[in-house]
Design a binder for these strands. Sequence first.
DNA 1: TGTCACCTGTGATGTAGATCACAAAAAGTA
DNA 2: TACTTTTTGTGATCTACATCACAGGTGACA
Lengths: 186, 186
Amino acid sequence: MERLRKHIEEILPLSDEEFLLITTHFTKKRFKKGDYLVRIGETVPQMFFVVSGLLKLFYTDESGKDHILSFPREDWWETDYLAFNTMARAKINLQCLEASEILCITLKDYQNLCNKLPKLEHFFLEKATAGHIASQQRILSLLSSSTESRYEHLLRRYPSLLQRVSKTLLASYLGVSRETLSRLSS
Amino acid sequence: MERLRKHIEEILPLSDEEFLLITTHFTKKRFKKGDYLVRIGETVPQMFFVVSGLLKLFYTDESGKDHILSFPREDWWETDYLAFNTMARAKINLQCLEASEILCITLKDYQNLCNKLPKLEHFFLEKATAGHIASQQRILSLLSSSTESRYEHLLRRYPSLLQRVSKTLLASYLGVSRETLSRLSS
DNA sequence: TGTCACCTGTGATGTAGATCACAAAAAGTA
DNA sequence: TACTTTTTGTGATCTACATCACAGGTGACA
């Protein structure tokens, strides 16, 4: 849980009591490689904070092809936000690429926590804004950049990703076939 | 300003005093078609709420081609959030496609307002989350759908857009050339 | 230690869409 | 109303990328 405290305190200082209150609302779980945290078609009772490990958030289209939205890793918040917030069924999957340590919070606990500690909404607002900005920049790069420069940009921004993720998965994040990406690398 | 009140109260009930407090932090401005609210390279002192009118949020790449991120219209919040929040220079333009009535708020006023009325952060958190979700879905459609189905989806979701926006602009929102879009329509 | 699943590179071929070019139609503007 | 600017459709050509197919490599696990 210390990791969560440091993470929140980058934005919001916390007293010991406040942090204790926060921790009581989360459950720590361990997942193995391949485990699903969210599966298409099921409900999404929780939001997740990644303490350690690596996941993929992805959509599987009608033809069975995967499209990766993100690679959540240490210090990331992730879930199917649409399904989580509206208590609907998931439209996307969230699955472990590595064994992972995760803090989980239910919608009810999340709402309770925000009521008891309203300044946390400031924290989550910052996170949501950052997420929105990042998504917009991804849209821009999909609209305006070549596959090659998107690939270079990705590696520059997350150099460690290449060590942890297969090129097949990187291709499906970039929106090209793995063959095309392979030809780019060489 | 009544429009703003109704808009906020869809999420958050407000007393008359609270709403009065809010209004004192905004400035109402009228813009003509073609006017810029945000221009690449300049600072972004304000965030905008569209009372009436239509705008485009777009990036111009090195080759001079435009890429449209959104068509903000009635009841939308928009700005270059990255530049606004970090007081940096804008990377994207925000320009009027129609004469528009806009409520403007500076970063300082925004922060003051949220301090004085913390429950507003709840409102903005909802908006930011919705924006993030919408952006994610756009990424998914860029990754997984054909141009044709993205076009159909856009028209289904915003049928009025076709009346207000040229196909050239729609093409640059969808990420295809206007020639290709023209061939699709026929 | 052998087997199996997955990953990666590479060739051949097909296709969606970019780009260039032109003309007619529509919409602004003086 | 006349003139300019913008929008739209359509043809011809070119290119990036998808798809299919195959083979060698690597790590996981029984």
